[in-house]
Nucleic acid binder design. Sequence first.
DNA 1: GACCTATTTGGTCATGTCGCCAAGTATGTA
DNA 2: TACATACTTGGCGACATGACCAAATAGGTC
Lengths: 95, 95
Amino acid sequence: MINEPRYTEMVAVLKAMAHSSRLFILDKLQEGEHCVCELTELIGADISTVSKHLSILRDAGLIGSTKKQNQVFYRLLCPCVLDFYSCMIKIKGDN
Amino acid sequence: MINEPRYTEMVAVLKAMAHSSRLFILDKLQEGEHCVCELTELIGADISTVSKHLSILRDAGLIGSTKKQNQVFYRLLCPCVLDFYSCMIKIKGDN
DNA sequence: GACCTATTTGGTCATGTCGCCAAGTATGTA
DNA sequence: TACATACTTGGCGACATGACCAAATAGGTC
């Protein structure tokens, strides 16, 4: 019941999304690829912190990365996660 | 940017969903109302634990409750949260 | 090779989450 | 009133998360 693999998998994705910096990253990557230093500047945290957020999103399968010279560019793999935004707004509107 | 209220609100909803027992509850409430003791039996945890999960989901605006005699029945307020399931499956399928 | 930039990884500390138990509240029944 | 059932709340211990700093890794330039 509770131990169904689909719950475990969904929990992993939901946990990955459940942080404002990570939501911001997903939102930003919707526009297109960005490297770690660009995202770091926008977020305003330590680069190591941003790098860890990115690896959490990658481990969850939400984003992918490509190394170009000495920079790493991240891109959104699953634009559908952002459809969730509209549901969120509905939730907030209904109450 | 990161501090936009919409991110804060979405994080609250995502955190509320990011637990296998709570996903199970949302899934179960899709069928219709259930009282705390029914959910407790299905989940197999302490009733106090289940009660706390339910209050987390209620605080996030995902479920609502009605007291009938000495039982409390919970119902899904936002069936759209379950649309997210299909996106999850897509995520898992793509990788 | 020395050096610089970009990124990742390990460590530590503060804080948050989760589960149970115990105690409190509410409603119904003897 | 006493007691049972249903649920909520407070507290505690175990564990997870998040932020920073420091150190390691990788690629490009002098």
